[in-house]
Simulated scan of single mutants.
Amino acid sequence: MTDRPDTLDPDLAAVVEAFEASGVPEWHTLDIESARRLEDDLFGADRTTPVAYTRDVAVEGPNGPVSVRAVRPEAAGELPVVVFYHGGLWALGTLDSVEDICRELADRVPAVVLAADYRLAPEHPFPAGLDDCVAAYEWAREHADAFGGDTDRVSVAGTSAGGNLAAGVARRCRDGGLPAPERQALLYPMVDDDFDRPSYRENADGPLLTRDAVEHFWGEYVRSPVDRANPYVAPLRGDASGLAPATVVTAGFDPLRDEGTAYAEALAGAGVAVDHRHYPSMCHGFLSLTDEVAVADGAMADLAADLGGE
């Protein structure tokens, strides 16, 4: 278990106070289409980091095309590649809502970032989204050079449910004989459905993510009780040996804190090189707040260094 202080970081507390004062309802209390519109309205407008260009391409997936948005920074030369999977509890999120953090990663690493628009639950429960994420990774390994990316240096990254999917892609690579990612960056990832951990009690009401929302959307993503023990759904329950090197980011005020910590420990215990970067005074989603929160800005710099191989 990773401890947390008594109070949020002051910069973050101001952001949370403003967010909560706006009266945004909890995601799980809305019907799915309303929740998706709200998420896109809240996070789909910002484009604060300049880049050379963005391009949308259609990648062949197992059940039709998968949309991928390529973000090329203004840096010159051949760059590493990061395939990015957005969060949103497997049910929310679009390429627009994730573009800002992808622009920032692209600029800071610097890297070509490829964001995958995987199929969402509940219409498409496990394993549909993961299958799309693997397809996007395989495409990057063959075609990222079209955007000046080095197809021999491809990492995966994701926030929250996207961290779960990034971990699943790394596991599929190991088990299916695909080239391993250079790194898996798991940012406050969902990796198990054990809601009895202390972090779920301490942070049941958030901020920015609640236990009730996590429990609800687990039920939307995983329709079979058998699948809940599947390591492609719950990576913490599987053998971690032989997986790609990892960065695991956790936050003290996040319901997901303890499972992320446990996964970092499981990776290390299995001999995987892992950097566990814990930020005690932060909450879920803090890496999207680099403009407002100094600790988040520093955390993004650390993440960029990991993905750039520094």
Rank of each mutant, 00 (worst) to 15 (best):
S224A: 14
E142G: 08
G149V: 00
D3V: 06
M190D: 15
E17M: 09
E74L: 11
G219C: 00
G168Q: 09
M300L: 15
R197C: 06
P62E: 12
V293W: 06
V57Y: 14
L38S: 04
E259N: 12
E99G: 04
A304K: 12
G93Q: 04
A70C: 03
N230P: 01
A144Q: 04
F84I: 04
L165T: 10
A116M: 02
L178W: 14
A135D: 00
P198Y: 13
D41M: 11
V226Q: 13
D107A: 15
P231M: 11
A111Y: 05
A106R: 07
L130P: 13
D40T: 08
V274R: 11
A128P: 02
H278N: 09
D239H: 07
V15H: 11
T49R: 03
C173V: 10
R69W: 03
V81G: 04
P231Q: 12
A299V: 01
P189W: 13
A251K: 11
D193A: 15
H143D: 01
L307T: 07
D152W: 00
G162L: 03
L289M: 10
P280D: 06
V81C: 03
E99Y: 01
E138W: 09
L120C: 01
R174M: 06
Y118G: 10
A111F: 05
G168K: 12
V68T: 09
R36I: 00
P65G: 00
R257W: 07
E215F: 05
L8R: 09
V156N: 11
D107T: 15
D46R: 14
A234W: 12
E310D: 15
H124V: 04
V112E: 03
A299I: 03
A136H: 00
Y188A: 11
Q184I: 05
D212G: 12
L267C: 11
D9S: 06
D194G: 11
N203I: 06
Y232R: 14
Y279A: 13
H284W: 09
V24R: 07
R228V: 05
T210R: 11
S97E: 00
A121V: 04
S160A: 14
G260W: 10
G44M: 06
